[in-house]
Amino acid sequence: MNVNEQPAIRAKSLTKKFGDFEAVRGIDVEVRPGESFGFLGPNGAGKSSTMRMIAGVSPVTSGTLEIFGLNPATHGSEIRNRLGVVPQADNLDGELTLLDNLIVYGRYFDIPRAECVERAKELLDFVQLSERSSGRVESLSGGMKRRLTIARGLMNRPEMFLLDEPTTGLDPQARHILWDRLYRLKQQGVTLVLTTHYMDEAEQLCDRLVVMDAGRIVAEGSPRELITRYSTREVLELRFGTGSNVEHEGRLLGVGNRLEVLADRVLVYADDGESALHEVHTRGLQPESSLVRRSSLEDVFLRLTGRSLEE
């Protein structure tokens, strides 16, 4: 088998324990080189714990993990040499300027100094921080720090880019600039692995994703597949006013295929949203507002990790 055909990531019964607590409970994941792969899941699902094991900064408790066909326990340094990492919590160097943050980080990879300077300038440009290149990290806003962390992760021109909630705190413009860059990296054959709480982001960026809940994988597939499998074609959103959504639950039973009651609205899953709305009106219900839309990954997410009435 050609070395390049090795999966970028191969995890079998991968488990992470913190003391007695099992944060990751035996997951199986395989990511092909060049694929863009997403981890979705509610807070505490174990996404970051998994990402940290993949990044070679957190020892595996049990199960096996191979990155580029190598074991992180024995070849951590080689693996990390080929990875770009954007951790969930920024760990920029507060004692260095923006430019030096990138240069010094590049030097950790043994990249020649002149090359580091060149790359650092290009990347600062990309994240639109060139004007602040001699400033200090603490003078940056939260979103700017995030951008700098992303730029730093690209210093070594990684084969695989690991991004843990990369766009949290980014303004819409910065998000689109990043998405564009990620598309281009993907075209160049870079493997992308990301976690996100933005479903539109996952839909846009991921070829394939897994939904994690409480340390387990509860679903896997392409965004389209997951929507077809776990949701209906359309969704009817009804708002009955604060606090009264739950009490309408009973009278809505049977409308559409499935109901999801959230704090602020009720979601009715139906293949035909308009006729579901008609049914609501025939039952004499008067929602404050209603909206029919196409089903999205968010609905899959809510179904898999939330409280659902049908089951």
Binding site: V85, P87, N91, F109
Partner: peptide, 8 residues
Amino acid sequence: DAMLASPL
């Protein structure tokens, strides 16, 4: 933490 995420 940043150093340990690199090959160091």
